[in-house]
Amino acid sequence: MWAVFKKELKTYFLSPIGYITIGVFMLMYSIFFYLTTISYGSVYLGDLYYATARYGLLLMIPLLTMRMFSEERKNGTEQLLLTSPRSVSSIVLGKFFAAVTIILITILFSIVYAIIISFFGDVTIPTLIVTMIGFLLLAMAAVSIGMLASSITENQIISAILTIGILVAPWFLIDMSEIFSSIDLIDKFLGFATGTISIADVISLLSITVMCILITIILIKRRKTVK
């Protein structure tokens, strides 16, 4: 897992994708920092993370995940990976954690805003930490969905659009039926943004993540027999 992780993380910064993802995330943080705190004179950071999560998920996660397996498949480099003695699980997990690390970097950078706020009022550290944990769990679930989409097509655009579709559709489907709230990721982040950890939210985000990773592994293994 470590070998794939290291190489993937390196690749994010050899191509512009890593910088663009982090850069645009920081831009979003900054814009929402102004809109949700400065312009209201508020010291509450929950809305900043909620807004960034919402639009970050929509725009940035698909960009980050679209190449994960699609590119390998198109270039034929998956042949190198799958004929190496490494297991499919370790390859999938290596790629997964590399993408999550990019998001983690943006989360760490976002501490800047908490530091700025601390000059004007009190930042409740536990609340902030809960929000960040929630943000990470949310990103993990979204990355796993993106990775799954990337593993079923060799076309990066299709993979990105599929990811956006899966992530965004529940926002509108909720209006049709409450049932769809169970697959709406951003809905599960709402609690974290206010500083409350709900076991139900943690479990559902984690289970979506684990499920998508498992399906990705199964799909890649299965392709060996049908390919």
Binding site: N75, L80, T83
Partner: peptide, 15 residues
């Protein structure tokens, strides 16, 4: 025990 050089030489061009 196997070293494989696939057809069409797939490589990571950014490395």
């Amino acid at each position: 025990d196997i070293g494989y050089m696939p057809e069409n030489v797939p490589l990571y061009y950014e490395l």
